[in-house]
Amino acid sequence: MREKIENIIYETLKELNEELENEAFENPSLKTKLYGGNDSLDSLALVSFIADLEDKISDEFSKNIVLADEKAMSSKTSPFRNIESLTLYIKDLLEN
């Protein structure tokens, strides 16, 4: 499951990057920063990324999840800090 989630995140990020043309997202890894630093998504791009990602996760796992909810926004460490943290967060949402 984790590998499937990672692949969906990579695919979604690469599709978004066709518009953004950000070098940091050309060859993403688990440590690629998504939000909150240089070479990361701005708030508008993050919203687009989250919406696309929620749709793809729903299609793949037949379960609707909400990534930008109160739990995510109130966490001491954001699930959007890098691909690894987002993968684990999505996995947790799908399992519960």
Rank of each mutant, 00 (worst) to 15 (best):
N17K: 01
K31A: 08
M1P: 11
I65M: 05
L13S: 04
L20N: 06
D52S: 08
N96Y: 02
L46E: 09
K76S: 15
M73E: 13
K33C: 03
L93R: 02
L20H: 04
E54A: 01
L13R: 02
E84W: 03
I50G: 00
L86E: 12
N82L: 12
K76L: 14
I50F: 00
D69V: 00
G37Y: 05
E95C: 03
A51D: 11
L20A: 02
I50W: 01
A72Y: 07
I83N: 08
K71I: 08
L53D: 00
N64C: 03
E18D: 03
R2Q: 15
N82V: 08
P28V: 10
K76Q: 15
I8Y: 04
S78K: 15
S43T: 15
G36H: 11
D55F: 08
I8H: 06
I57C: 05
Y10H: 08
E6K: 12
T87N: 13
L94E: 03
K31R: 08
L34G: 01
L20I: 07
I5K: 04
T32R: 07
L16F: 04
V66F: 02
L86I: 14
E23P: 04
K71D: 06
D55H: 09
E84D: 15
S58A: 10
S43I: 14
K4D: 15
K4A: 12
P28M: 10
V66E: 08
F61L: 07
L30G: 04
T77N: 12
M1L: 13
L20T: 06
E3W: 09
N64I: 02
A72S: 10
E19S: 01
E60T: 05
P79E: 14
E84V: 06
N27C: 07
K76H: 14
L46R: 13
K4I: 11
I65F: 01
F25E: 09
K4S: 14
G37M: 08
R81C: 15
E3T: 11
L88E: 13
K33P: 06
E84Y: 10
E70V: 07
F49M: 08
K76V: 12
K14E: 09
S48F: 05
A68S: 12
R2A: 12
L16R: 04
L16P: 01
E11F: 06
V47S: 14
S85W: 01
K91W: 11
K76E: 15
L67W: 06
T12D: 05
K14D: 03
L93A: 00
G37K: 10
I9Y: 05
E70Y: 09
E21H: 04
T12R: 07
N38T: 07
E3N: 09
E15I: 04
M73G: 14
N96G: 09
F80S: 11
F61Q: 08
N82D: 15
E19C: 00
D69N: 11
A68K: 08
L44K: 13
N22S: 10
T87C: 10
L93H: 02
K4V: 12
E95S: 09
D52A: 05
